[in-house]
Design a protein around this nucleic acid. Structure first.
Lengths: 150, 150
DNA sequence: GCCGCACCTTACGTTAACGTAAGCTGCCAG
DNA sequence: CTGGCAGCTTACGTTAACGTAAGGTGCGGC
């Protein structure tokens, strides 16, 4: 009668979920303080139910996507008020698109940076091979300084 | 004899270089405290010479490449001791390559994230178009909650 | 009856790269 | 001489997302 193994009625304690999602206890509690989670209490201990676990899953995923906790909080609030709020849904879509734009930008920047780095690598390599030939044992004490960077 | 317009003998004051490189005075001084720059002093005022300007240029470039100030500091020290230190040069090359790997990773992560975001966008759009047809005026007060995130 | 474990709370510490405010100096124009 | 600007120093504040430490609770086992 106690139904302790029905999947929907399953309760988790903090350590279980922390391990499942690769978080620390501190992080779980922090999310609660932040307003992302509100598990019930069994006396003093937190009791996470199926819905809390789903929320936590969303939080982790959004974090992987690079959203801030503040944004995630707003997302959760949007979901909490229900889908009939089309305007809010539109807002959520906007946020996702904005994030996509940011990431595209970052990718472009990264490619540009990579190109510059490749050039620098090449220059250093030329520098090294040039010196590995005629290696002056200790010449040019103070005058070698002042060379412009690649 | 004073040679005040020889390009090599030109001295800059802090505000000039700050504007040229798009930095604040605070930032310039911070870099000095951090050990990246050591301009001479004319009494109390900082006097930046041609070499300092070149260094600053390197610093800004390295920052654009995503290196930390700590790394940049080490680079500058490597340059200061001269090129005959092949081992150090090799180290510098390693750092550049490591940074390149990091950026490649970031680009890959970004692409992955973009894919996930695209999916989410699509789902939200489906959600919106579905609702824009038969819009229920205010039904489903409390039971609409609990929907799993896309 | 005590051990140890899993959990709890409160609250200060951390990192990077500056921002910002308060109060001072030196110099030049009017 | 006064105003104003450009520069100076010192030192605390900021942001995000937790880390870490100190000290307390409840419970099951030996």
């Amino acid at each position: 009668m106690a139904m302790t193994n029905m999947d929907d009625g399953r309760v988790f304690q903090i350590g279980e979920l922390a391990e499942e999602f690769g978080l620390t206890l501190r992080t779980m509690r922090f999310y609660e303080d932040y307003g992302l989670l509100k598990p019930e209490r069994d006396g003093f201990a937190r009791r996470y139910k199926h819905r809390d676990r789903a929320k936590l899953s969303l939080i982790c995923r959004a974090k992987r996507l690079g959203f801030t906790l503040e944004e995630i909080k707003q997302f959760l609030e949007l979901y909490a008020i229900g889908d009939h709020q089309v305007g809010q849904m539109q807002y959520l879509l906007d946020r996702a698109r904005a994030r996509a734009v940011t990431i595209e930008q970052q990718i472009e920047d990264g490619k540009q940076t990579l190109n510059e780095l490749r050039e620098i690598e090449a220059q250093i390599e030329r520098h090294l091979t040039k010196q590995s030939g005629p290696h002056d044992t200790d010449a040019a004490d103070g005058k070698a300084k002042g060379r412009e960077l690649p």
